[in-house]
Amino acid sequence: MKKVLITGIDSFSGTHLSSYLQNAGYDVYGTSLFLSGDKKYQCDITKKSDLLIVLKNVKPDFIIHLSGISFAAFDTSEEFYRVNTIGTANILDSLLELGLNPAKVILASSATVYGNQGLEVLDESLCPQPTNHYGASKYAMECLAKNYFEKLNIIIVRPFNYTGINQQEHFLIPKIIKHFKQMKQTIELGNIDVSREFNDVSYVCEIYKKLLESSVASEVVNIASNRGIKLLDVIEMMQEMSGYKIEVKVNPAFVREGEIKSLTGSTKKLFKLIGEVEQKEFKETLREMLEA
């Protein structure tokens, strides 16, 4: 069995991905900032000493680096760079120091690095223009990681929005689900006419798996579907499934000036590298979350 090390294994993405890869026959190990247990190591990626212990013990065939601060409204700006940027460099430096060269090292960046491009479909040829510390820390990570391309088999991925069971409630879709589960009378949202990607976490997991098993290296690639879904349509699907209507109040504080009506990621490069990947209808994703 091939050994996969997932950093941030107890995160939303990490829990889904670890189960997905285990079911596919991989021997899955992980790191967590707070917990340790069976094949799970307590590890602070900002401390190189922690990483050296984990990597020396596991000697992974593959690494998927998910650990980091993913909530853009996190309070402390410096932490984005300490964790997302320096933490990633620590992992790459530790591999080189130990003389380890996994078959694949996948680093999770974010579509947030693109910033405001004024385009409806974003592809990897665009020059990133991050507009917040989260996006800037991920782009800084990408720039540093490219210096390791000749030494390690690295893929940098830029996931667009995805969701599923157990995602934290400060994210948009779980927030909507929670309101319907509690049968709230009203919900405050931003511009409900905009169209965005809301992919299913299982779709994302399958893409990670295909990238692991591919011969691809030294690439930056979107994890996207080019499938735009309007917030208004999400509300209508939820109303149909739950059997009751909720009043949507547009909160001006949630509306971004000059917001692009439709914004999705190009799949052209992704599907060229790994082949086309199908995903379930978004209504099925919502139903699973509502019934969980």
Rank of each mutant, 00 (worst) to 15 (best):
L5D: 04
L5I: 01
I6D: 00
I6Y: 02
D10W: 03
H16F: 10
S18P: 04
S19Y: 06
Q22A: 13
A24Q: 15
A24H: 14
V28T: 01
Y29R: 02
L33F: 15
F34R: 15
K40C: 06
Y41K: 00
C43S: 14
D44K: 10
T46N: 05
K48D: 10
L51H: 01
I53R: 14
D61T: 07
D61S: 14
H65R: 11
H65S: 09
S70Y: 10
F74L: 04
E78P: 07
E79Y: 12
G87K: 05
T88M: 08
I91G: 07
D93P: 02
S94V: 05
S94W: 00
L98Q: 09
A103R: 15
V105S: 01
A108Q: 15
A108Y: 13
A111C: 15
G115H: 07
G115R: 04
L119V: 12
L122C: 01
Q129T: 12
S137T: 00
C143V: 14
A145D: 06
N147W: 05
E150I: 09
K151W: 04
L152T: 07
L152A: 06
N153I: 06
I154E: 06
R158Q: 11
P159T: 00
F160V: 03
Y162D: 05
G164T: 01
Q167P: 07
E169R: 10
H170W: 13
F171Y: 15
L172W: 02
K178Y: 09
H179I: 06
F180K: 01
K181Q: 15
M183G: 14
Q185D: 13
N199R: 12
V201L: 08
V201P: 01
K209S: 04
L212A: 00
E213I: 01
V216T: 14
A217E: 15
V221R: 08
I223W: 08
I229Q: 00
K230D: 00
K230P: 11
I235E: 10
Q239T: 02
E247N: 13
R256W: 12
I260W: 05
K269I: 02
K269C: 02
F271P: 03
L273C: 02
I274E: 03
V277R: 05
E281P: 08
F282N: 11
F282S: 06
K283P: 00
R287L: 11
E291M: 11
